[in-house]
Design a binder for these strands. Structure first.
Lengths: 135, 135, 135, 135
DNA sequence: GTGGTCTAGACCACA
DNA sequence: GTGGTCTAGACCACG
């Protein structure tokens, strides 16, 4: 069913300094890519070994991430062939993306409030935030 | 919903379901309160025991949070009297708050981009966000 | 909520010669114990290390079994304390036990038929099967 | 539902969803047919290619099954003619069928006991079981 | 003490 | 080549 579309839209990036386990970061990035439609059912994921090399982590770490997603029905594997996106979207239904966005948004607003930044100020901050990203 | 408001304007709220260790949530909330000026040098913190009771966590957990903040020079203990905020602001100096805000902001923008939300759309999302989230 | 009932009703036994992965055997035995009511929500499971010693397998293997059950919502862990049965029964609802029994039964009858044993003969076989088990 | 009935009474059916490797299912079905007398020494087996087409699996998979049975002396190949059942019954001798039946029976009884079903109840279950299972 | 993460490496099963 | 299982062992986080 799949034309041989390989993994063009998945781009993994790890932050090994923020305490979030590597395998969780991988899970999240696959989930988000699926939620936002950048990958679809049937798409092939990078092989465990190639991704391990690319991210410079142990293959077992990738396997752990893929394994959890498989248990949750998001991926399936064909041994000898590779790992593929299953039909099922992560959480529930059609509004999963919207709910995820609201969740991330809510956490952000709360955290900013804890830092003493009111919601009104956020708009300015965001507009002021451009490519002066250092690192 | 837990809150303990003793001598300061500190207000703790824990989320025991999101995977972030309790002691780290406490540290962060004290840090943020200091960064944002809600507490100041000399302010008294709740006792370990009272805070543990109020938040329904193990006193060891509070002790660990206070202990780490003491190591970092943010708190100090006066035996027989209690625990107090030291003068030193977290991490660096005056720009610590600004750096923290930029860090949170950067993570938020990146995460939203991973979900397929462009920076331009964020403003609308934030303005549309009113406190209709409870959970 | 739990009186300190430890794991009296769980008894693990492994068959390392039948090709079924060890971690799957453990998963199945926990599932079956839960389905049949021998363990209940809140019950404490053996610690990873103690079970690993008892079954003479690597702790990682036990952790893998517990981990899969945790992802599926059947267990939950309290680091520093141990692993506990959650409320949720394995598959679906109240008839999960009945469905599992029918599934096992169906596989058995089919397999026997493949060996040339008719359903009628099975009753005699079962009645003739008693404690001449060697091993 | 797949079936291939060439020169013998062999009838293969695969379940690609139960985790048992395809090549092993094929081996088992040939073994069982031999044990139960549905095929005999000298019977011709389907060619690798025809069986692969019929079962819609990779020819390598059939070749692997045949190869393993050949190593065990159950099959032999006559180049240019085909693959045939050898005289030798699987494993041991005349009691091989009986031992296999007892093995399957023992596993079944144990598994049912793990599900809380006593041996006495099994008779009723089997009698109540009619072919109301599909899938 | 508890479980969690990660690495390194061996061996197997499958296509 | 693919993924799966298991071991051994290190280090961390938590109570």
């Amino acid at each position: 069913m799949n034309s041989t579309n390989t993994e063009t839209t998945l781009r993994f990036s790890l932050d090994t300094a923020n305490g979030v386990p590597v395998y969780r970061q991988i899970i999240q990035q696959i989930e988000y890519a699926l939620l936002s439609g950048r990958v679809q059912a049937g798409d092939k994921l990078p092989t465990i070994r190639s991704l391990a090399v690319g991210l410079k982590v142990n293959p077992n770490t990738i396997a752990k991430a893929y394994g959890e997603l498989e248990i949750r029905g998001i991926l399936h594997t064909q041994v000898g062939s590779g790992t593929y996106i299953s039909g099922k979207k992560p959480i529930g239904e059609e509004d999963a993306l919207e709910r995820k966005i609201q969740e991330v948004l809510g956490r952000f607003i709360e955290e900013m409030r804890a830092l003493g930044v009111a919601k009104k100020e956020l708009v300015d901050l965001i507009e002021a935030y451009d490519e002066r990203r250092m690192q």
